[in-house]
Amino acid sequence: MYSQVNGSIPARAGIGLRAPHFQAVLDTLPEVAWFEAHSENYFGIADSGQLGGVPLHYLQRVREHYPVSLHGVGLSLGSVDPLDRSHLKQLKTLIEIIEPGLVSEHLSWSSVDGQYFNDLLPLPYTEEALVHLVERVSATQDFLGRQILVENASSYLEFADANIPEWEFIAELARRADCKILLDVNNVYVNAMNHGFDPQHFLQAVPVDLVEEIHLAGHTVKTFGEGVLRIDTHDQLVCDAVWDLYESAVQRFPHVPVLIEWDSRLPELDVLLAEAARADGITGIGEGERHARLA
């Protein structure tokens, strides 16, 4: 369907596709290698589950010019509720329509007993949770008929019964479930600061061959009395410390696509493009090489 564009995600910088930028992207076809779309934004809301709507129309037009990855925020992989089959079915249909280079979800949960919180809630890193996640990721991959990437989430607390370090948990999940890892470097940094570990340690502990995508985003520093917490807000520029950590990540995981995420207080498209260009600069990709468009 999109034969004029190679659908695989190149090892270059992409940006998140957001509704306020749809028209600007199509009008200007900016020099960026690929786009990532939040899967659920393109499901529509038909009772029948049939996909449709204006956002899907735009995503299809964007896909005619760029490789696209689909990034889910609502599957609730870590929940103890049964997997939502209708959600999975819609995702599978979207995959058939868009032919994405990569499909990803989060190492988190967002629903229990049928109620959804529409947030990426933290899991206790225990053997019980690991066994559960392996089963859920495997079931998802079986249903979709393809491998997915699972992203490390940010968190503002840890559970008392957690006895597996986060980096071991996600690596072990990827090994046992035969999935890949979407390494969010900002989330590594946020968690390292919030929970007091060395972010380099996280990077070194994750096997090189398991990481197939990297995320970069801005976060917010919140002060509560004497204490400081970093909140993963995706509403500003990537901070210097995260850029530094990204440089280390590139050393360890070369030739991996990287994405600039920006979800609220969205600036002009140019701001995201400049962040993507900065990321490409770090991996040594120069002007004129960034665009993967063939059409």
Partner: peptide, 17 residues
């Protein structure tokens, strides 16, 4: 939910939640 007492900063469980 049983939370680990804060390794960094002095936050109560309620503040984190």
């Amino acid at each position: 939910p049983g939370l680990k007492s804060g390794a960094v900063g002095e936050f109560t469980d309620e503040q984190r939640l």
